[in-house]
Each structure stands twice: as C-alpha cells, then as structure tokens.
Simulated scan of single mutants.
Amino acid sequence: MSSVVVLGATGALGRVMCRAFAEEGWEVFPAARRGLPDYGSTLREIDLNRPETIAAAIAGGDVVVNTVPHEGLIAERLVLERGGLLLNVAAPSRAARLRLMQARPKTPSGLVVLNVGCVPGLTNLVAAELLRLHPSSDTLEIVITFVASGTSGTAAREWVHKYLTAVAHHRVFTAPLAEPYGTRRCLQIAEDEQGWLAEIPQMLDVRVGACFLERSMDRGLRALNAMHVLSRLPRTLFTSPPPFLSRGKRGDEATRDPIRYWTAVYVSGERIGARSIEGQGDYLMTGAATLATAEALLHHADARASRGLCSVEEVLNLDAVAAGLSTRHVSILARS
C-alpha cells in the first residue's frame, strides 16, 4: 500500500485530496495546523511558519502533497535537502518559484514537482504536448474556467482575486470553449506567470484567460474591466462571497459543476492545435490529476529516480498520466 502525507488537510482542497487518495486505497496521513473531528488522532501537526514542525509531519509517506499556498515553500526546501517526493498543487507564484530555485541545494536528495493538478498541471502537460507536435507555434493560449458557486477555500478565492485585480484593465480575447460554456470572451490574466511553464520558446507569446460558468458573473467582470476599475474589487467579495454565489455549500463539499479548460497553439493567428480538459468539479479533477501524477512518478523508474526541482511537464508527459485520468472521469479531447 502506498502512503501520502497531505499538507493543509483541513482546508477545502486538502479534505478533497485526502478523500481522493483514501478511496484509491492509499494510506493517508493528514497534516495541518488545526484539527477536525474527522481526523481525530491521525492528524499530524504542522505549521509552515515553524520549520521545526515539518520534518516529523512529512515522515513516512511515499509522497507528500502540499495544498498550502505558502510563498516560503519551506516544505519543498526540506524535501530537496533531506529526500522524498513532494507534489505542490498550490500553484506558487513565479517569484516564489525563482526564490526556491536559487535556494535549492547543489546536490538535492529529494524530488519536488511544482505545478501539479489541473491549472497549472494538466494544462502544462497539454501545452508541452501541443508545442512538441507544433514546434512552429508562435502563440500558446490557456483558458481557465471558474464556477463562482463551486467548491473553493479561502486560498483559492484569494488566488482568483489576485489575478483578476492585478491591473485595472485586462486585454480580452475570444475562445471556443466546449459546452456548456460555448464561445466566450475571456479576460487575460497572470501575464507574468508564462502559463506556469518551466520553459517556453523565446518567441512564444503566452496568454492565459479566465471566464466563469455563470454568464452574469462574466458580464459583470467584463463591464468593470471596460471601466478600468477591476483592481478596485474588494478581496472580501471573493473570500466571503454573498449567499447567491455560494449556494449554501460548505467549503469541504466537492461540487460537480462542469469544468472545461482550454489549451491551444497558433501560428500567425491561425489555430493549429487545441485540447479541451473536461470533467466535473475543479477540486475533484485536481484530486484525480494529482493521483495520476503520483502513480506515474512512483511507477516509472526514470521519474522515480529523479532528484531536484522541476515543473510537472519536465518530469512527465501526457501519456504517463492519461490512463489514470480516464479511469477517474477526466477527459482530454482534441479540438479543432
């Protein structure tokens, strides 16, 4: 039986992740700052602001999954120094990734894989595959679909708020998403993240777009964008949404709203390749993608022997996780 330590196990994504691994027969060790009755005595105490608590919390797991968006990446540094395998599903910023690269040991003992999950994560693998198939591409396009009333914790909502309010006005582009989204005008966000890819060709333009399942939310955000006031949106609108956006859902209930992530490549404005990542519930899909990634890393000898710091597309390809995704109802479909 394989084992996993889940950091941030009492958060919305952490709880979904614990259930996902447990349902597949893994031994799960939840770790967090605060306990919940569900975990009882199995909860391991960890505080990422107190490095002395980390080593004991992550001991004994074949894999460590970090769901906590901690800019210090302290757990990642420890694994690089002392050994082990850690998958980060918290989408650390480019600045945090660069700091970790600069601080990593010259001879690492463990493997830390960043950008695991769906976005970033599966979009990285799909983008790498499309760029391999179409090396002449001059534009890479990624669209993230959100559900305002879906499962999300405070950290995830803060992540969305950060990118939507980074500037007063975003560029807008149109993408032909799969139903029930359809063709949408998307706000271009996260310009500094380069699609969360480790490396991109020098002349490649990367654009990341965002749209919401709820068309009224989309229209409202585009109207604010047109008035150049998006940067004024209060953080509390996202971290403490009004009841009509939350549907009364508790943060740990994994909703099953339709998710349709989009990745495409272009040459001189002409689309030459595209994929749609489809499933139900972004947290459920993130759990499935993380499971498939963990299995691939443990079962592929070359990946298992790797050491150091990398993004998921640097250590795995799309084929390595395809079987694990299909059995968990996540589809990656070719689009015209």
Rank of each mutant, 00 (worst) to 15 (best):
A12P: 09
C18F: 08
G25D: 11
A31D: 03
Y39W: 08
G40C: 13
S41G: 02
R44Y: 06
P51T: 15
P51N: 15
T53Y: 01
T53E: 03
I54T: 06
A56C: 00
A56N: 09
G61N: 06
A75N: 04
R77D: 09
V79C: 08
E81P: 10
V89T: 12
A91W: 13
R94K: 08
A95D: 09
L100K: 05
M101S: 03
R104F: 03
P105I: 12
G110Y: 01
V112N: 07
V113Y: 03
L114P: 14
V119F: 15
V126E: 05
L131V: 10
L131E: 06
L131K: 12
H134D: 00
E141Y: 04
I142K: 00
T145S: 06
A148W: 03
S149L: 01
S149I: 07
G150M: 02
S152A: 13
G153W: 05
V160M: 11
H161D: 04
A178T: 09
G182K: 04
I189M: 01
A198G: 13
V208E: 12
C211F: 14
R215F: 11
M217I: 15
D218A: 13
G220C: 11
G220N: 06
L221N: 01
R222G: 01
R222M: 02
S231T: 07
L237Y: 09
T239Q: 13
P241W: 12
P242W: 00
R250W: 12
G251R: 15
D252A: 12
A274C: 14
A274W: 02
G281V: 10
L291G: 06
A292D: 01
T293D: 03
A301I: 04
L309H: 07
L309W: 12
V312P: 03
E314G: 09
V315A: 03
L318V: 01
L325H: 06
R328L: 04
I332E: 11
